[in-house]
Amino acid sequence: MSSTNKTSAEKMSFAERLKGMSDTNLLLTITIVIFFLMYIGAIVFLGGGFLKPQAFFNILNANAALIILSCGLSLVMITGGIDISVGGTTALISMCCAVYLDFHGGNVPVAILIALLIGLAFGLVQGFLVAYLDIQPFIVTLAGMFFARGMTTIVNTNPFNVENEAFVALKDTRITVPGLGSVNKLGKYVPAYVGVGVIVALLVVIVMFCVLRWTKLGRQFYAVGGNKQSALMLGINVKRTKFLAHLICGLLTGIGGFVYFLYVGSGSPSHASGAEMNAIASSIIGGTMLTGGVGNIVGTFFGVLSLSTIQNIVSSAGLDEAWWTGITIAAMLCLFLVIQSLVMSFKKKA
């Protein structure tokens, strides 16, 4: 202790600044490095399957909804809160849209509107309870999750596939990626493709990144999560900012819910089970701190990719039993939580 006291004040502040600056970026770097290491490891050890561009785009296709959900969740976590209702809400949205499209002969634009409204309603109520009534976000969103799951069953009990033509056409729309593709077994060149959901997800990532990085509102989210007291002294309306975070998360859940529905094309009470855990895990792996104030949307994006790559590795390594997925996700979550905790305590000591 005495040796650190002896160092000059200037040096101390420089070291502190360095550590303070690298907080978000350090975690982001760890995430990206781990993702690339994992992907390269998968290519080396598990063979050529992962080498095809389409393998990568399939991960994107399957996880477009998760990317959007995780973006919303990261935002809430940056303000120091949490939202575990996103999975339940996604299931509710798919079920409502499915029932509307199939049983009531609806059209796609209105279905999108329904999805957004359900998401916004959840964000509105939960945001109000958390921000203005000062109730613990976990309790509120836990209730939200159970409410959404229960409502899904009340809306319709049995799973079914949607056969609405306009919807199926949209679901099967493939956008080819120029310049990438592979030759299949018959010697035919097959271009790589992504679904509509991936485009939406990428747009969400870009917009959210810009908002958080360059707008006044975006900086307010970080300020509120970092230190509520000093944010208040800076003249930031803390309650409104928290409320907005939940509202935006609700909106993104609406978008993500519809993208999920677009990918599965059916309604079922068991849809998106555990999606909230995956979204939280992705955000944490992406370097978002649970304590708030630290996080990056690009990190979240890579967090989702890391998580799904791990799942792909687990299933293609022959450990196909369902329990391995749960255990690996939990182990990864545990690892990253501990790393974060250590980084935090290290920073405090410095």
């Binding site: 309870l129 109730i135 836990l142 209730a143 159970f146 409410f147 229960g150 409502m151 069953t153 009470p269």
Partner: peptide, 21 residues
Amino acid sequence: DALPAYKAVVVIVLVVLSAPT
């Protein structure tokens, strides 16, 4: 399967009533 929805309403009412505000 629908039970949680009713219980969630009870939870929300409870926590709202016991909220300091």
